[in-house]
Nucleic acid binder design. Structure first.
Length: 222
DNA sequence: ACCCAGGGTCATA
DNA sequence: TATGACCATGGG
């Protein structure tokens, strides 16, 4: 069931360089900046950081937060995110760099990420999937909504992040790239088709999203 | 003028 | 443990 649903969703959205970045650290920075923020606003902030050669842990960790405020202003929540970026960069340098961290197994790396100020479950998994190339399913808000509408997750578990991740991640056969494509497809689906008012009666992919009419069992078996 | 975005933290009950 | 305020800019 889940495999078919995911495959159809991925096939429906061609994703090319959905998360653009020149380095792994830039992915991690983007993961912080994009919290509750549109990517277009994040891109400008990243461009400014690049302009000032701050897209590496060593430089960013010693940059005064007051200066970061100005550079990342377009991404919103400046003071909050400036602090989070510094804590991220500091954690990386204190840990011996990204190469050392990349040597950790995924569960250990996830725990370490969650211990950093400003990194919650979703951000941690996004970093694991797109920054550290781990085979991790990002069970973000859109994903949980999608799982719920597909009837693939019980209603109580819809709010449970780890439960939603574990519904997909162990079942889905595929590489890290598949997980990236799936997450991108879920977000694009939510943004392009089901927003702002998710009336999926006009959804071009009505077989994928069955809001209002309950789980569509028949649509998954074809 | 209003709503919300590719969340997380912190204070309160 | 479970909600809610808060961050704050930019696009619709």
């Amino acid at each position: 069931m889940i495999e078919i649903a995911c495959a159809r969703l991925i096939d429906s959205y061609t994703v090319e360089n959905w998360w653009p970045a020149d380095s792994r650290f830039e992915v991690l920075v983007g993961a912080i900046l994009v919290q509750n923020t549109r990517w277009a606003n994040v891109a400008r902030a990243i461009d400014r950081l690049r302009e000032y050669r701050l897209l590496d842990p060593a430089s960013l960790s010693v940059t005064p937060q007051a200066r970061l405020h100005l550079l990342i202003r377009s991404a919103g929540c400046q003071s909050v995110k400036a602090r989070r970026l510094v804590s991220l960069a500091t954690w990386i340098t204190d840990s011996g760099g990204l190469e050392a961290l990349d040597g950790l197994a995924t569960p250990a790396l996830r725990s370490a990420l969650l211990a950093v100020h400003g990194i919650g479950e979703e951000t941690a998994d996004a970093m694991l999937c797109f920054g550290f190339a781990r085979r991790v399913f990002v069970a973000d808000k859109y994903a949980r909504l999608w799982l719920s509408r597909m009837g693939l997750v019980s209603v109580p578990d819809t709010k449970n992040y780890a439960a939603c991740r574990n519904i997909v991640e162990p079942v889905l056969a595929g590489t890290n790239i598949c997980m990236q494509d799936l997450h991108a497809a879920i977000v694009m689906h939510a943004q392009s088709v089901c927003r702002p008012d998710p009336k999926c009666g006009q959804c071009a992919l009505s077989g994928l999203c069955s809001l209002g009419s309950g789980p569509e069992k028949g649509s998954l078996t074809e």
